[in-house]
Amino acid sequence: MSSYAKPLPKLDPLNRPFWDHAREGRLAIQVCSACKDAHFPPSPVCPNCLSEDQEWQPVSGRGTLESWVEFHRAYWDGFKDDLPYNVCLVRLAEGPLLVSNLVGDAAKARLGAAVNVVFEQATDEVTLPKFALA
């Protein structure tokens, strides 16, 4: 795994729970304990009510495809062998938008298509949530 050449997340106290959950095969987002607002990326206070009382909750992993693109340029050398690669935008059933990758046959991508989360291990510490067309 030490040869992993793509960008890795910079783990900090705010985002570490997301990656801890992902390593265990769960997709989790931050939910405000006070007003139940669900958001991602994580925020030091709830963007809806400003409460600091927030927790991480696993979500269904279901979502819909809002858009996608196909990279023909590798902005990092680690992506060179993947060209062209796709990046997608998913609206989770619980609300937040997530940027990720579509695995499998991306040619069947359509706006509003149902997708389900899958997990791809990158390193011992980092597992990336990705999405497959349902």
Binding site: S67, W68, Y85
Partner: peptide, 28 residues
């Protein structure tokens, strides 16, 4: 070099963000 939120999935550059919007516009 300093990774942003979506960099691990290879999402980067203002152009890609506009490509994402335009694909959505095409679909809608």
């Amino acid at each position: 070099e300093s990774p942003g939120t979506w960099d691990p999935w290879g999402m980067t550059s203002p152009g890609a963000a506009h490509a994402m919007m335009f694909r959505r516009h095409m679909e809608l």
